[in-house]
């Protein structure tokens, strides 16, 4: 029991990440509303960002900023942060495209949920 508590206490951030990924995937798959799907997609991606940032952390680490000679410090790993900056841009682009498509779907069919779309399809 104590082990479990230690496990949770030291790794709670990963557990949070997994929960977020699951919430995101659930929304992506189960939600009928297209906008909610896009929100799910964002949660899913954010969870991944969090995952990267958390594993780059070093205990007691500080921002990797160049210090004057003679002063030393422990840095967190900067590379995942840089990667995630790129990934955020990618995520933003995907969200933009997704929302643009949802808007176009609404213009064409006047619905934004899957059930409604299926009905429209059937009527055609």
């Amino acid at each position: 029991m104590e082990n479990l508590l230690v496990f949770i206490a030291t790794r709670y951030i990963y557990i949070m990440t997994i929960i977020l990924v699951m919430i995101g995937l659930y929304a992506l798959i189960a939600k009928k509303n297209l906008v909610k799907k896009v929100i799910g997609l964002n949660i899913f991606q954010t969870a991944i960002f969090l995952f990267y940032i958390s594993f780059s952390d070093v205990d007691g680490g500080t921002a990797p900023i160049y210090l004057p000679d003679g002063v030393s410090a422990t840095y967190v790993n900067p590379l995942p942060h840089v990667l995630i900056l790129t990934a955020i841009v990618v995520g933003l682009a995907i969200t933009a495209v997704a929302l643009a498509i949802v808007v176009r779907i609404y213009e064409e069919y006047q619905v934004t949920d899957e059930d409604g779309l299926q009905e429209v399809m059937k009527r055609q």
Binding site: L25, L34, K37, L41, F44, I94, A98, E108, Y109, L117
Partner: peptide, 20 residues
Amino acid sequence: NPRSLIAGFNYLILGSIAAG
């Protein structure tokens, strides 16, 4: 063809899960 919008959206959702 407006159906291409739905196909594109579904492609986007599954493609993004894959990329994730």
